[in-house]
Design a protein around this nucleic acid. Sequence first.
DNA 1: CAACCAGGAAAAATCGATTTACTCATTTCT
DNA 2: AGAAATGAGTAAATCGATTTTTCCTGGTTG
Lengths: 357, 357
Amino acid sequence: MAHRQAQQRRPSIHDVASRAGVSAATVSKVMAGVTTVKPENAQRVFDAVELLGYRVDPLASDMRRAKRRIIGAIMPEFESEFFGQMVTQLESLAEQRGYTLVAASSRESEARETEILARMHDWRVAGVVLAPVRNEHGPAAAFMKANGMTGVLIDRVLSDDAFDTVSADSAAASAEVARELIGKGHRHILVVGLGEQAATVRARLDGFRSTALKLAPDVRIDVVLAETDVEPLRAQLRDYFGQGANGGERPTAVYSLFLKGTLVALSEFRRRGWHCPNDISLVGFDDAEWMQVTWPAIAAVVQPMRQIAGHAMEALFARIEGGEGPPIARLEPCKVLMRESVGSPGNGPHSGGGDRQ
Amino acid sequence: MAHRQAQQRRPSIHDVASRAGVSAATVSKVMAGVTTVKPENAQRVFDAVELLGYRVDPLASDMRRAKRRIIGAIMPEFESEFFGQMVTQLESLAEQRGYTLVAASSRESEARETEILARMHDWRVAGVVLAPVRNEHGPAAAFMKANGMTGVLIDRVLSDDAFDTVSADSAAASAEVARELIGKGHRHILVVGLGEQAATVRARLDGFRSTALKLAPDVRIDVVLAETDVEPLRAQLRDYFGQGANGGERPTAVYSLFLKGTLVALSEFRRRGWHCPNDISLVGFDDAEWMQVTWPAIAAVVQPMRQIAGHAMEALFARIEGGEGPPIARLEPCKVLMRESVGSPGNGPHSGGGDRQ
DNA sequence: CAACCAGGAAAAATCGATTTACTCATTTCT
DNA sequence: AGAAATGAGTAAATCGATTTTTCCTGGTTG
């Protein structure tokens, strides 16, 4: 597949040693930057390294250490902007410290999560950044505990008695969304969510509800929560709106607790010919690039991805380097971007069916 | 960080061997499924493995092989649906064959691409799936050749003299887009693209242009291509439309050759208050989930992600297992989804400025 | 009965580094 | 001056497997 010459075995530390006329141990020291090597010998090693194109084999190098310079990252998915950026960021941070990031997708399955973790344990990774499918009480975190693994939990977690956690301050952000919606005059709001078990769903729901009720005790908050998958949620939402249309009662705003919910809500509005914000307002947790170019632009809660990634890695490396002390639970503040999809109720023509296009 | 008991060293093959009263070599054979072991001894090994919770250390296991059971994947980014799905899929396929996938993002930089490749070479990966930033003629592919690495090139490539390639049939898809747009009556079309050097950009442009000209020799095709980044493209597009507005001439349709271009086009339409498809039609290369829930739904070319991933891995493993023969260039057919963002020119009110919302 | 063969398992070499223990020289200190 | 400390370097052990080589034990064969 390439030049035969290039095919031959890569030079090992011994090749360099013999070329430089020193022992392998000396070469190892030079490569590690130890200063107790005679400059003359160091130079000969450098020359040999240059000549042979020698590079340390990280795998062999890691063999002797109990913890290898590998960080594992487990995300529920790679397909969304949020987790895509997260992996990119984590990779970059790991790399800065000379570690290799091995990322895996649990594909929203707790079973897979534990499998992947077991495999990472086999690799004797130095640490793991786990974004659990549900929350900090799942089998994955238990596995990590039982096996004495070092790790940080992020995103769908609140706090844990064994691991540091870093997540967005969902409750505060949701409270702000409530303030905005109540402030605009909404008194009948639907909250849409997926995965009742996800730590963040409850935080978001509670944060929203408590603030909304405090500001407007007469507010009506309906909740549609699906357990596991998006399609059931779509069906539930269809039912919900079907009933509401019959009774004549319809919420004037929808708050979706997660990205796919925003998509489902939008597609349901579409189906019924409702337009934002005239017929109904919409805010979603999680921002995406497309949300600012559509008509209307979709209001969204922006998670501080970089802060989450940064603090997660900081906490992780502190533990890897032996940091003691009780686990720390961090909450990073979000930004709420109010865009055109939010208006005041009754401010536009309340169309019953599609009329545009 | 966990039970002290769990903290202790993991059992090695020797621990199993002594527990089972056999040699390490025998344990190794049992683990590898070699049949020349007395059933009685095999059973004792199994028992010891069970008792100690032994698992093979993949790193140590890979030490002696020239090629390790690791596949490297280098993508230009992780943030888009396309590459996110690609990584997920590749990971799954690698895993099926007992390999670990190590993914890295080149962040659209050729320099980083080569750095990552060098690091993967250090790891002595068995093979690499490279989605190059530009095309198959970059420094990364050259590095792979020079170092005798095994690999497959995907996505922004056409064919190569050293590596198998797998990509979407951009030209054919673009031809179909041309047929659709010409068929709807469009005779002034703007094509928007990024990265003139990307193999696919030229293929898409040529495929579109040749078919459009064949069907309607009088068609006017304008092209706005930015070299490297999205922001310059936005500026160029702004200029383009600014001039067109002065001359009174404006394209009736836009074909974006890549996802971000579709976003830029949409946001430019937004800025000018143009609506799809009444004021202008839009088709983009690359589909995304949100495109079918917006108003209008955005027409898009869907890349056969699973096929690309599947054939890439097939080709890669064939080479890893020593497959010979000239490199194969595969083109996978795309699907074109014509959605509401495409209409016939002059079919709706040609608004000069925003009038809705 | 010696020679040969085969099955099964153990011993030893290997992969490519790091780290420990030890050896000489020099210095430094008492 | 003699002991202790320091500097610079090497041989060998080690990490945890795999693979090659060697060895042993019966059984068969000439």
